[in-house]
Write a protein that binds this DNA or RNA. Structure first.
Lengths: 280, 280
DNA sequence: CTTTGCTGTTTATGCCGTACACATAGTAGT
DNA sequence: ACTACTATGTGTACGGCATAAACAGCAAAG
């Protein structure tokens, strides 16, 4: 096995989704390689992850890895699913907002433990079972709202990108601090030759003297709150619309004589929805 | 010149902020290097930007570049400011929301022209004059609101990261499509071996059959709207608070007998604010 | 006329991913 | 029991990357 060329995605799917491989008592094995790679990336970041170093860590030659993994790219895919498997989503209760916030904070925690997660780039990473489980759970937080399917997907995508963007700045500052031995604050504090030239920028100067940089907001908390507020605006909007129209055909909804809120405009629509739910 | 080592940030400041260098009629020069590098990155992305290729494009040897630029990192800093200089911020009118949206869309356009902008990583890029001008303008859009200084800064940071995150997925898909000759849609459409395994994920399946992926939201437009909605919630909240307290000392505000909204609680506060505005 | 500094070149070091040919060992088939 | 095949690990090599260090030519300054 592992004979597929590095650019055969289907082989990657196979590697990701086959479960419970027996691990040989000695020698290399895919899970061992992946775990070593995760450790390495935790220590040195994704840029510091090289096939050579992974092999060294395991006490084998570089090329031995290629007997088990098609290449570096696929190794990263496998690492992704590995760490998501270590942090299963704990089902939360509450409204959509509480659950979505919990899911975002969970992703944030995972990225603090494995900072390289946010550094993974590329649009064609085959998701493994754990990644899909996470994604499905994120989607489920909004499934109960009146958001349209495409909107649910868009919101989840946005939240994911938000967490990654925040994690990315975090890991970058951390790494530069570790590499140079100079803290971010110190480094920027030493840029006098830069600050000398900033007088001519009015708003910047004003916010500076007003102390805007002295007690900055927590970037993640602040951003997450704004983001959820923005989603909430949309959810409320959709809820209002839902209250006025048929959930199946979108037609107008006459108020029920009983005063109880109606969902479908006719018995026909109600049954169509029921059948759709059974089949799909 | 250009004798500073690659890890001397002050030398980078010097390079970025000195204006109007005379360009020699022939031979290398910093502006020519930067322009060639921008062209290259436009074509091949930031990962495709190498000192070798820049030098080739100019018809010089690799090492000749190092006579003018300390290293690749500083070159990227210079490229950043170069392209921001090509797209000056057009002053917009309107409320904070219209202006902030315009500024975000402007940044989005720049990133579509120079996709590598979003790929620039690292927390210690010295900003050049054009970068600072852009930043100052972004800050100014919110200066008229009741947001606290730290909140203005946080919002601007969030918007910037949002645009970069969206630009990043765009450039990544584009590049993979160009590299492989297979469109994103085709590629994912060919992953049958993956889709076979997704039945067990309920929300995912439900949204799939509901057609959530058939007509996806425009990621940038959708996200920007949510984001601005979220900021608006905060602005409104702060405005309410502002209406109830003194803009200078934060103390309670008694309603004026005339009914006209008051801003300061006392003449003393009004004068303090006036003096502060004159000095800062 | 020589010294100095600016500019470009040459060579070399140490990373990286991975293609390819080879060695070895265990196993299935006869 | 002998053979052929397969799985697994190794060694060497190629092309690409950033950049350090030494060197060569040339122009202006002394």
């Amino acid at each position: 096995m592992a004979r597929g060329r590095a650019d055969d995605p289907d082989h990657g799917v196979e590697l990701l989704w086959r479960a419970g491989d027996r691990e040989p008592r000695q020698g290399l094995s895919l899970p061992r390689i992946v775990r070593a790679a995760v450790e390495l990336a935790d220590d040195e970041g994704l840029a510091g992850l090289s096939m050579r170093k992974v092999a060294d860590r395991l006490g084998f030659t570089t090329m031995s890895l290629y007997r088990h993994v098609p290449g570096r790219g696929q190794l990263v895919d496998l690492m992704l699913d590995e760490v998501l498997g270590e942090h299963p989503q704990a089902p939360e209760t509450g409204g959509w907002r509480a659950r979505l916030e919990a899911v975002a904070r969970h992703a944030w925690e995972i990225r603090k433990r494995h900072p390289w997660l946010a550094e993974v780039r590329g649009s064609r990473h085959v998701p493994g079972p754990n990644a899909v489980a996470h994604y499905d759970y994120m989607l489920s937080t909004l499934a109960g709202t009146a958001l349209r399917p495409s909107e649910v997907i868009a919101v989840v995508g946005m939240v994911g990108r938000f967490v990654d963007a925040e994690a990315l700045v975090l890991v970058e500052t951390r790494r530069e601090e570790r590499r140079s031995g100079v803290s971010e604050e110190e480094w920027w504090g030493s840029r006098d030759s830069l600050y000398e030239r900033l007088d001519r920028y009015p708003t910047l100067s004003h916010l500076w003297t007003a102390g805007g940089w002295d007690h900055p907001e927590d970037s993640f908390d602040f951003g997450l709150r704004r983001l959820l507020d923005g989603v909430e605006v949309l959810v409320r909007q959709r809820d209002e619309i839902r209250d006025e129209m048929c959930a199946e055909c979108g037609g107008p909804l006459e108020p029920a004589p009983s005063g109880r809120p109606r969902v479908y405009c006719s018995r026909a629509c109600q049954q169509r929805a029921y059948r759709r739910r059974r089949n799909g």
